[in-house]
């Protein structure tokens, strides 16, 4: 009896860890944008939804090679991200932060309903099922394994971009002090644009991995949007490593919590954990100040 129970627990732990990879990737882009532009994109998960639709149409309907479709999806979402910044965020950069948050909230409704208008509310998927790994009577999703690997790679790539390139250095500098860097001759507009592009691109990358595991529909963003925000806050807004750790902690809670009861209880526990953590460490796990 005990033995069987443990297998389930290990399976839940490993699957939780793998699920954390996707969440970490999702939080990476949002954190980057927050760290640099100081705006929370409430509509971030909806950008991911557009990426998933791009994958669905290119790969699922027109049968273009999956890697090409993935590249296209990343491109589409990156450009969308840039548009969000240029058209919505840039005009209100000077207004209270809460207005910026609300403007992206308006975009959330807009994106959801544009998707409904264009593609209807039916659930769609690639019709592609990756095999499931079996090890010692435990089952692991191959798609999650892939997502985990890509998330780690994405994290390393982003780290290299931020530390080894000139524009990366400018991004880090501007996130430390928005006013001074402009005086030092950094073109903050350009830095914001690159950030929005990269942030959007990361959302696109996440969408390619999510579409392998989930059906896409106009409201799919709601299922992982809120959890992404709280991961970023849990890790310390703008702190990418913190977000990464936060993603794994929450995914483990969801996975193990869902093992004992219905899946929603896992999420409830994750959100409650977040609220409690906010009281213990308001600045986030790795946040300073």
């Amino acid at each position: 009896m005990d033995g069987i129970f443990d297998i389930y627990l290990v399976e839940a732990l490993v699957n939780g860890l793998l699920f954390g990879g996707v969440l970490a990737l999702l939080s990476l882009g949002l954190n980057l944008i927050f760290g640099v532009v100081d705006v929370i994109w409430i509509c971030y998960a909806e950008l991911v939804m557009f990426g998933m639709y791009t994958m669905y149409w290119l790969n699922g309907v027109y049968e273009i090679h999956i890697l090409l479709s993935a590249l296209a999806a990343i491109g589409v979402v990156a450009i969308l991200g840039l548009l969000v910044h240029v058209l919505v965020i840039a005009p209100i950069l000077g207004s209270p932060p809460i207005n910026q948050l609300l403007a992206t909230g308006g975009l959330l409704f807009f994106f959801q309903s544009v998707a409904t208008l264009m593609w209807g509310i039916e659930f769609k998927n690639l019709g592609l099922r990756l095999p499931i790994l079996e090890y010692n009577e435990m089952y692991f999703s191959y798609a999650r394994l892939l997502a985990f690997g890509v998330a780690l790679t994405g994290m390393v790539a982003l780290y290299l971009f931020l530390t080894r390139t000139y524009i990366g250095a400018a991004i880090r500098a501007i996130s430390q002090d928005r006013e001074i860097m402009v005086l030092m001759g950094v073109d903050s507009r350009k830095v914001y644009w690159v950030t929005a592009l990269v942030g959007g691109g990361l959302a696109g990358l996440a969408s390619c991995l999510l579409v392998l595991q989930y059906d896409v529909h106009p409201f799919v963003g709601i299922t992982f949007g809120p959890i992404t925000f709280i991961i970023c806050v849990l890790g310390g807004l703008g702190n990418m490593l913190g977000g990464f750790i936060g993603a794994f902690i929450l995914s483990l809670i969801i996975s193990v919590g869902g093992l004992y009861a219905e899946l929603e209880w896992g999420y409830v526990m994750a959100f409650v954990f977040f609220i409690v953590m906010m009281f213990i460490r308001p600045q986030g796990l790795l946040g300073n100040k």
Binding site: I92, N99, L102, G106, L108, Q112, S113, T116, L117
Partner: peptide, 21 residues
């Protein structure tokens, strides 16, 4: 045209926050 209402709604809200806070 299901979704048209919220499309305009969402767009209007964004415009409001930008131009008529």
């Amino acid at each position: 045209l299901a979704g048209l209402d919220t499309t305009v709604y969402g767009l209007m809200l964004v415009l409001f926050i930008i131009f008529l806070p």
